[in-house]
């Protein structure tokens, strides 16, 4: 949205946003916590408010935004093919801005040994479950990885009545923001165990426990739980380029989390607006 607004401000006329979900806003829509907009809008708001503010800016300008449109192919000739409920279409553009965000690393990518029961979620999926669908992924929770989404979800699950037993981090330092550790863990008495490595998921149908090791002492422990949330890093979503064997450049641009992972939406917004103006 910010790239489109920037381009419109710069005077560009024909701008099309293609979004696969039914509404604009991306990941912001499920971020109902505070902490967005401090530097860009100079006020603190939730992610959903931030998205709403920006949607308004899009609709006020000469920008065509189509939702529920999934882009599945782009070509070096800058043709974009997408599908929606009225069919499959190919459009061509002078510039393509890939603002496709990121995806989460999963348990499978870490290849944590053990069984594959229900109750293992990425933190972002758990966030969608709780904040968008109003369902609880579990009651007795262990979070693996101290990324921001994991910290935020530790607090969110606690507020919804679950017990978060621990956040396990394999490194010797926090990977998310200090602010989130203080506000999401410390304020709720949730322990953060650094240099702790998950060794095995236990449970046949539903998660029953997790076995982990304190890498400083070598001590093993089994912690009973019914839910394991993984917050172990984000990967820029560049598959459309990789599949087509295209490098960015020549009118194809990456921005936001699709380019590299950002801590703050404010930075994403600024970079995207700048790119938009540049293209105009």
């Amino acid at each position: 949205m910010a790239a489109a607004v920037g381009a419109a401000e710069g005077g560009l006329k024909k701008i099309l946003i293609l979004e696969r979900l039914p509404r604009l806003g991306g990941i912001l829509n499920q971020c109902i916590h505070l902490g967005f907009g401090l530097t860009y809008f100079k006020e603190e708001m939730t992610g959903t408010e931030y998205a709403a503010r920006y949607k308004k800016m899009v609709y006020e300008r000469d920008i065509e935004a189509r939702t529920s449109c999934f882009v599945h192919t782009i070509t070096p000739q800058k043709e974009i093919t997408f599908v929606c409920a009225d069919g499959e279409y190919t459009v061509s553009a002078k510039h393509i801005v890939m603002a496709t965000g990121c995806r989460e690393r999963t348990r499978e990518m870490l290849t944590v040994p053990g069984t594959r029961p229900a109750g293992i979620f990425t933190a972002g999926l758990a966030q969608e479950m709780v904040n968008i669908y109003g369902v609880m992924p579990g009651k007795e929770v262990v979070v693996i990885g101290s990324g921001d989404i994991g910290l935020i979800m530790a607090r969110r699950m606690t507020l919804e009545g679950a017990t978060v037993h621990a956040v396990l981090e394999i490194l010797d330092h926090l990977s998310g923001l200090i602010r989130n550790k203080v506000q999401c863990l410390d304020d709720f008495g949730i322990p953060l165990y650094l240099q702790h490595e998950p060794l095995e998921i236990i449970g046949r149908d539903r998660v029953e426990a997790i076995r982990y090791r304190n890498n400083q002492t070598g001590e093993h422990k089994i912690l009973p739980c019914d839910t394991v949330l993984f917050s172990v890093g984000l990967i820029p979503e560049q598959d459309l380029l990789i599949d087509a064997g295209i490098e960015p450049g020549n009118g194809i641009h990456l921005v936001g989390n699709a380019d590299y992972i950002h801590d703050y939406v404010d930075a994403v917004t600024r970079e995207a607006e700048k790119l938009g103006r540049l293209l105009a």
Binding site: A118, G134, V135, G138, D205
Partner: peptide
């Protein structure tokens, strides 16, 4: 809804409206 049958429910309780 389950992952693969009874005992593998995904969500613990729904507050769906």
């Amino acid at each position: 809804i389950t992952k693969r049958g009874r005992g593998s429910e995904l969500v613990m309780e729904s507050h769906e409206l």
